[in-house]
Computed example of a mutant assay.
Amino acid sequence: MSVNPMAYEAQFFGFTPQTCMLRVYIAFQDYLFEMMLVVESVILKKLDGFPNAKISAFQIRKSTEKFLLFMKEHFDKLFGKMEEVLLQLVLNIPKNVILPEDKVHEQYPYTKEQFQALQDEIDQLQQRYKAEASAGQALLAEIEEQKTVQAELEKILQWFDGLENICRAHGTSNFKESFAFLTQNSKKLQGVLKDVEKKSKKLQRSDQLE
């Protein structure tokens, strides 16, 4: 088999010429093996017509294998010549032939240095794109955080509005006065709670004494 990769031919045909030749070789070889089995079965049938024959089936099999080996050696030599002809003349694209999809390279040739510079520019653009994408994600996260803070602020404002309405309902319009009013009521409520706790404890003790 040829060691030439023949990449340009593979681009044109859609398969490597070596793969094509390998499949042809396997197909011919399988056909040769099948034919030898057929020949062997025919000889065995003919042998049944000669009951006094001193040739056994084992001897016929050995002879068939020797003949198959002989045929395979000659077939490999013949196929090697056929492969050389096909790969050079039939499945080979001349060096002066350019495929239609590659004509653009002929119209706009570039050096290895130019290609490397273009590749470096592409890498830089990709890095910039990744940085901008990362910055965009950070900005979206910040916007979501601001929305959360805004929602909390709106809740606080609503709470203050409700507090102011309560204070107005009790005749207090100034916020400082309202806050002082709520503080006093809170202290009174705490005092009432303490009195309730004391009375509850006294009742529990009296119940225990009884």
Rank of each mutant, 00 (worst) to 15 (best):
S2A: 12
A7F: 12
A7I: 12
A10K: 02
G14E: 07
T16Q: 10
T16M: 05
A27H: 15
E34H: 05
E40Y: 03
K46I: 08
D48K: 07
S56D: 02
A57D: 08
F58D: 11
Q59K: 02
T64C: 02
L69C: 01
F70R: 01
E73D: 02
E73R: 08
E73A: 04
H74I: 04
F75I: 03
D76S: 04
K77N: 07
K77P: 02
F79R: 04
E84P: 00
V85A: 15
L86N: 02
P94M: 09
P100S: 11
D102N: 12
T111S: 09
E113A: 08
Q116K: 08
Q116C: 05
A131P: 06
E132M: 11
E132D: 14
S134V: 07
A138K: 11
A138M: 15
L140F: 04
E145W: 04
K147S: 03
T148M: 06
Q150A: 06
E154V: 12
E154S: 12
F160H: 13
G162S: 11
A169W: 13
A169P: 05
H170L: 07
T172I: 14
F175L: 12
K176A: 09
K176G: 00
K176E: 05
K188N: 14
L189K: 13
Q190E: 15
G191R: 08
D195Q: 07
K199S: 06
Q204E: 14
